[in-house]
Design a protein around this nucleic acid. Structure first.
Length: 565
RNA sequence: GCGCCUGUAGCUCAGCCCGGAUAGAGCAACGGACUUCUAAUCCGUGGGUCGCAGGUUCGAAUCCUGCCAGGCGCGCCA
């Protein structure tokens, strides 16, 4: 596809007064494809040449005529529209998808570069709720996207396994702890204790004090609270891993704040040596007020450290280990200040790679709080999605009979719906969690994509037509639907690039919905079964290409494409 | 109070980075389409002062300023 664009740029540059450098950024895709594949708006030229844009467009159209693969150049008002020869376009796009298959959309852009992504990162004292799900899904998708662009990607789950809340939790367990409950359902049980102790602490400030003392002892290495802490941690991780595997999410490294509890001293000493650390009201701070970033608190007045201190230690280790070209934190936007402070402090410490760190933030999921006990647990959501999917599948008994593994298929359907609903809106937006909306199975949803994919799979199974090695692409041009699909297919690689640049899997969602819609619209017109072989084969090739790109895109989102549903 | 983010159809959103050709989808409503490869689909109808007010520009949903509304953050939580 890029070759057509370059062909136009090259040809335009031959016109006196134009150059490749001038023209390349001006060339755009028209809003309406009926104008052509590319368009040159002449406003900028009009200003420079002090002529009317409409005249310029007309003049250029006359001078250029058709050339190479460009079938026509027409002026429409101030626009110069280029139409690529439909046959050349179709052959090029479908040929490329045919050759690359699962690698269509891939690139070598990132070869030799490493990206470290930190995502999911639940806090052990708190439940794995929808907020963590958003980080998990986003991070996992970004991992796929960067991998497909050739980067070496290391995924890290940085557990919130250290901090005052463990003092609080240990206290709760000492008060009300039940070993059987803890073993049977660690995450939910710890959450219940956490909620209960927080309520108690609100009425009794002494509890807060005792918790702080507990944690202080832990930082000093006291055996008893540490043993308890270790049990909480181990049991929780086991349960997380179960949930991750259900979602198809994988981490290269499980780490956590506790790993750095001894290394923070080194950080504090370095800060002190560099004259960055100040004492204020008994606490150690770095003054970031000159940059409008408030002050960063690195050690409390009782000497215990904070999240920020441990993050400083962790980034240092990560750079030493990976020499990353980028370090990405997928964490909610409520922690924006934290990361801005972290990055600025790294810069002040003289880390030359400080500007390689990125906070990929995302909006809040409203209506949920760990303190008030309104959390929706991930397992419940996945189960509910599965239940609804199964119901829907059973509504069509004939199709249901064809599905080999209804249980697994329903689970995948439910997760597709959830993953897609989360990724389909842009990161920054807050959203109100709404079961009906998340688990909707109609319209712009993950199931719409799955349905499109499964429909083509059905055609490939049932039409009785096989893909031959040579195709007469000309036979496809009788239907207008073909070019709409081909044009859309051609845009996939650039969509993947854009999604990576902006850390926005949502771009891929929008793209795939558009592709699936074009497919559904063309379904009748591109009928395969019973058509003369050359036509049937050409159509099947087109449909196969759509299926391939749908699958490639869905995988980037973390969805498993289904052959039957 | 200060800082950041968001505000587009009844609802959920895309379009904003990089200003241009009639502002697009889905849901909901209403009316159609299954003797054929998945109707979890398709076709049609109605529905918008792009939060408000200025400014820049030949041209603003898009850029700038101010205001309003909502969310988040602002030294001993993570």
């Amino acid at each position: 596809m890029i070759q057509f664009r370059e062909e136009i740029v090259h040809r335009l540059a031959q016109i006196p007064g134009l150059s490749e450098k001038l023209v390349r950024p001006l060339l755009e895709k028209p809003a309406d494809p009926s104008y052509g594949e590319y368009a040159l708006p002449c406003f900028r030229l009009a200003r420079e040449w002090r002529r009317r844009p409409n005249e310029i467009a007309e003049d250029l159209a006359r001078q250029l005529g058709s050339f190479g693969s460009i079938a026509s150049v027409e002026s429409v008002g101030p626009y110069l529209n280029f139409k690529i020869d439909p046959l050349a376009l179709t052959r090029s796009v479908l040929g490329e998808i045919g050759e690359k298959g699962p690698d269509y959309g891939s690139d070598k852009l990132g070869e030799g570069k490493t990206i470290v992504i930190d995502y999911s990162s639940p806090n052990i004292a708190k439940p794995f709720h929808m907020g963590h799900l958003r980080s998990t899904i986003l991070g996992s998708s970004l991992k796929q996207i960067f991998s497909t662009l050739g980067y070496r990607v290391a995924s890290i789950n940085f557990l919130g396994d250290w901090g005052t809340q463990f003092g609080l939790l240990a206290l709760a367990y000492q008060k009300w702890g039940d070993n059987q409950e803890l073993e049977a359902r660690p995450i939910r049980y710890l959450y219940e204790l956490y909620v209960k102790i927080n309520q108690a602490a609100q009425e009794e400030p002494a509890i807060q004090e005792a918790a702080r003392e507990n944690f202080r002892q832990m930082e000093e290495g006291a055996r008893e609270p540490l043993d308890l802490w270790n049990r909480f941690r181990t049991l929780s991780i086991q349960e997380y891993e179960r949930v991750y595997s259900r979602l198809g999410v994988h981490f290269d490294v499980y780490s956590g704040e506790s790993f750095y509890r001894e290394k923070v001293q080194g950080v504090l000493e370095e800060l002190k040596a560099k004259g960055l650390l100040q004492l204020s009201q008994g606490a150690s701070i770095v003054d970031l007020l000159p940059w409008g970033l408030n002050v960063a608190l690195l050690a409390k007045s009782d000497g215990t450290t904070l999240y920020l201190t441990r993050d400083l230690a962790a980034t240092h280790e990560r750079y030493a280990e990976y020499r990353f070209h980028r370090l990405i934190y997928v964490v909610g936007s409520d922690q924006r200040l934290h990361f801005t402070q972290l990055f600025k402090t790294l810069e002040l410490m003289g880390r030359p790679w400080a500007d390689r760190c990125v906070h990929v933030d995302f909006g809040r999921i409203l209506g949920m709080s760990t303190r008030k006990g309104q959390a929706v647990f991930l397992d419940d959501v996945l189960d509910e999605g599965k239940r609804r999917a199964l119901e829907k599948m059973q509504a069509n008994p004939e199709k249901f009979a064809e599905v080999a593994d209804p249980d697994l298929t329903a689970d995948i359907c439910g997760m597709s719906a959830i993953v897609f609903s989360d990724l389909s809106r842009r990161r920054v937006k807050d959203y109100e969690f709404d079961w009906e909306q998340v688990l909707a199975f109609e319209g712009d949803t993950g199931l719409y994509l799955q349905n499109a994919h499964a429909r083509v799979a059905g055609i490939m199974r049932k039409s009785g037509v096989a893909l031959p090695s040579s195709i007469d692409y000309g036979l496809l041009l009788g239907e207008g639907e073909t070019l709409d699909l081909v044009r859309h297919l051609s845009a996939f690689p650039e969509v993947v690039h854009r999604a990576a640049e902006e850390y926005e899997p949502a771009f891929i969602c929008t793209y795939l919905i558009g592709l699936a819609r074009l497919l559904h619209q063309a379904y009748k017109a591109l009928w395969v079964q019973g058509r003369p072989p050359p036509l049937a084969e050409a159509r099947l090739k087109l449909l196969w290409s759509v299926k391939q790109v749908l699958a490639n895109g869905m995988r980037l989102l973390g969805m498993t494409p289904l052959e039957r549903m």
